[in-house]
Amino acid sequence: MPTIVHGFDWPDRLVVGTVGQPGSRSFYLQARDGRRVVSVALEKEQSALLAEKIEEILDELMTAEGNPVSVPSVTPLELVDNDPLEQPVEPQFRTGAMTLGWDPSTAQVVIEAYPYDDSDGGDDPFDSDDPFASDAAETETPEPAEMLQVRIPVGTARAFAARTLEIVGAGRPICPLCGRPIDGEGHICGLPDGE
């Protein structure tokens, strides 16, 4: 059966947003084109890494010799989006693997999200250091039932990354000693062994 592609070539909106209070927030990647809205669930760490990787791509494009695309170094003011997620938030799937790329023919950043598949009893991809890393060469992966594919221009990508990092950073403060979140009712620092 062919993969169902929830495609957005020039979306009206693409954001990462949350539902819930810090410490129990759920993260969502949401795309909108007209009245059509698709949301997929993400992990906090995955949201942060997606934004960081987009920033890396944009920064590389800015310094690439012969690149004809004008890439903004900061978020264009007209693209700032601080609005909440479109309601109701009904996730299409929980995201497992993601890919991120650059399409020079349209000058767009391409984001693809695939459903998390635990049918093989495998580990959650977000338990690894890099959920964008692929082990496809090591194992044969079946075609996913569905995917989200979004193509956004460079200014929108810069705004998306900035908002996402702001959303991620708006959670619980991080302990400077152990790197774990500090809860409102206190924190017992769990320094790694040997420190």
Rank of each mutant, 00 (worst) to 15 (best):
P2L: 09
T3S: 13
V5L: 09
G7Q: 14
F8P: 01
D9K: 11
W10L: 10
P11L: 01
R13T: 04
V15C: 09
G17V: 10
G17Y: 10
G20T: 11
G20M: 10
P22F: 10
G23Y: 11
F27S: 03
Y28H: 14
L29N: 00
A31R: 03
G34H: 07
V37W: 01
V40Q: 07
A41T: 09
S47D: 05
L50V: 09
E52D: 12
E52Y: 10
I54W: 01
D59F: 09
E60Q: 14
G66W: 07
G66R: 06
N67A: 06
N67R: 07
P68S: 08
V69E: 10
S70K: 12
V71K: 03
P72R: 08
P72H: 12
S73G: 15
T75M: 04
L77I: 12
L79K: 03
N82I: 03
D83I: 01
P84A: 05
L85V: 06
E86N: 06
E86V: 15
Q87E: 15
P88L: 05
P88R: 05
E90Q: 14
E90P: 00
P91Y: 11
F93L: 05
T95L: 05
G96P: 04
A97Y: 11
T99N: 13
T99E: 14
T99H: 09
L100T: 05
G101V: 02
S105P: 00
S105E: 13
T106M: 08
A107Y: 04
Q108A: 08
V110Q: 06
V110P: 01
A113N: 06
A113F: 13
Y114C: 02
Y114N: 09
Y116I: 07
D118C: 07
S119Q: 14
S119W: 09
D124W: 02
D124L: 06
P125F: 03
D127R: 14
D127F: 13
S128T: 13
S128Q: 08
D129V: 11
A136V: 12
A136G: 05
E138G: 15
E138Y: 13
T139Y: 15
T139N: 07
E143V: 14
P144A: 05
E146D: 05
V150C: 11
R151Q: 11
R151E: 10
I152W: 00
V154T: 12
V154L: 10
A157P: 00
A159L: 01
A159W: 00
F160D: 00
A162D: 15
T164R: 02
V168E: 03
G169R: 08
A170S: 15
P173M: 03
P173N: 02
P176G: 03
P181C: 04
G186Q: 08
H187P: 02
C189G: 02
C189I: 02
L191H: 06
P192S: 04
D193S: 13
G194Q: 08
